[in-house]
């Protein structure tokens, strides 16, 4: 059930991070189309020389290629990295698996890169606002959180609304403005990324950083 609740959130975060740089997103989309076109050109060139390949014609192969491409597209659009995400149930394997495959599963590590990778080992609870003490952009407050003592004593990252972040800007122009302000502030992580409430996400999973 937890995984089910996490899934749309991670998917949304994934899409948002892809959209952070719009030009890059457009180039990636165009490149994907180009890939498919190149593959069809290859098939066309091949079948121009060999009209029947053991009973297969150009159009039957193109049909099959299209079906495979469609399935691949659906797969990488909605389920990229799902397997490792699912396998990574709350255990030390979690952190290990995060480094393995897939864009969806990488999220918790890539947004707050300092948090889990510091090699701190089991220790006091880590709070996001402690990790980013004075690095919040203008208009963001670091909210002191209520007690986060973990009964088990492990370093458990828990969510108590540590980051008070603005709403995701709806329009393209607003996003551009926000990004421009962010560049001026010389921040390392964009506030757009911070919209993902990672801390709560980790709390849902009750991840223990046992490494």
């Amino acid at each position: 059930m937890r995984t089910l609740r996490l899934y749309p959130r991670l998917l949304g975060a994934h899409v948002r991070s892809m959209l952070e740089y719009e030009a890059d997103f457009a180039i990636l989309a165009a490149a994907t189309v180009l890939m498919r076109v190149v593959n069809v050109v290859f098939l066309a060139a091949l079948f121009a020389k060999v009209p029947h390949l053991n009973g297969w014609t150009f159009w039957s192969v193109v049909l099959m290629f299209g079906i495979v491409a469609l399935a691949e597209g659906v797969g990488s659009l909605f389920f990229d990295g799902m397997a490792s995400f699912w396998l990574a149930s709350p255990s030390p394997m979690f952190a290990f698996a995060l480094h393995q495959v897939g864009d969806l599963a990488r999220f918790p590590l890539s947004i707050y890169p300092i948090a889990p990778q510091g090699g701190a080992g089991p220790g006091p609870a880590v709070r996001v606002h402690q990790l980013l003490p004075d690095r919040l952009p203008a208009g963001h407050r670091a909210v002191p959180s209520a007690g986060t003592a973990d009964p088990a004593g492990g370093g458990v990252l828990r969510g108590h609304g540590n980051l008070d972040l603005p709403a995701w800007p709806a329009s393209l122009r607003e996003r551009r403005q926000l990004r421009a302000g962010y560049a001026r502030n010389r921040m390392e992580t964009s506030p757009l990324n911070d919209r993902l409430p990672v801390h709560r996400l980790l709390d849902l999973r009750r991840v223990r950083y046992a490494f």
């Binding site: 997103f25 457009a26 180039i27 990636l28 490149a31 180009l34 890939m35 190149v38 290859f42 091949l46």
Partner: peptide, 19 residues
């Protein structure tokens, strides 16, 4: 990443690696 993909597609076709 997009540029990388586009490069891969173009190079594969025009270098003669595919056909």
């Amino acid at each position: 990443m997009g540029v990388q993909w586009a490069r891969l597609a173009v190079v594969n076709l025009l270098s003669g690696a595919l056909i």
